[in-house]
Design a protein around this nucleic acid. Structure first.
Lengths: 138, 138
DNA sequence: GATACATCCTCTAGCCGCTAGAGGTTCAAG
DNA sequence: CTTGAACCTCTAGCGGCTAGAGGATGTATC
């Protein structure tokens, strides 16, 4: 039986965060000692690891809720889990593309700054003048 | 003189957001009509464009505050503006590296899913088993 | 001048995913 | 039996908006 602190260490999750997951129903209510402290078993440790790992992959808590639900029903077809993962992959790819464009523009800004007065600073100039910009008003 | 709605259209910023920027002191208090409606001039339009453009480049509102401040003092040396931009560039590069790792793992997950029951789903399996994972506990 | 109605106003509360802190209780070691 | 680390609940805050209630203003048309 693990205390919340031990669970925290084992999973790299802050204590407060574990309680938060319980509060929003992502983690089940654990058993308690006589004095009211939480005690966790291995099933709960696994569940929290699953959640954490999914978070590290950028899944939203809602997506994780779905994934956990699927994981709890081994006989259902797995297309849904696949779809969720594909959705996530797509999002990651979009974000990457966006960041790539940002990086290009930031690099341009930084490289052109010659280090004089702010009046002549390319960084500020670029920020002022949207017209030279690669990023669109979405 | 622009109404808040027109300013909103010209800059692609929601009306509420403009008022929010005013509230947190990023935009100056504009003039008002007799009836109390906001009216904006070109200086304010420029300032909001600057803010929006900076936001699109991922600068935080705090960083933008600094950049605006520098922009208001043309005789100061521009190292600071440059430093802020470099910091931002570094952040973007870090985020990109992270996303790249995520993409790799997500792709792996998705490609290995053969479409059976959730019990055999590679997606869920990978999420369950942290040990095969490329992303580290930071 | 009246009327319609789009746009404006202020205010409060909510979103996500935590995180921090106050103020008090329980547990385990010595 | 005492110490003190770890636990408890509760509330509020972060960034950066966004939404909605409920009411006032501005402008175009008759």
């Amino acid at each position: 039986m693990l205390t919340i602190g031990n669970l925290s260490k084992k999973t790299g999750t802050k204590v407060q965060t574990i309680r938060y997951y319980e509060q929003i129903g992502l983690m089940p209510e654990p058993g308690r000692t006589e004095g009211g402290q939480r005690r966790y078993d291995n099933a709960q440790l696994d569940r929290l690891s699953f959640i954490r790992h999914s978070r590290q992959l950028g899944f939203s808590l809602d997506a994780i809720r779905e994934l956990l639900d699927l994981s709890d029903h081994p006989n259902r077809p797995c297309d849904e889990a696949d779809a969720i993962a594909r959705r996530q992959l797509k999002q990651v790819e979009q974000r990457m593309a966006r960041l790539k464009a940002l990086r290009t523009e930031l690099k341009r800004m930084v490289h052109e700054c010659s280090g004089g007065r702010t009046a002549d600073c390319r960084v500020l100039e670029v920020l002022r003048d949207h017209s030279e910009c690669l990023t669109e008003h979405e």
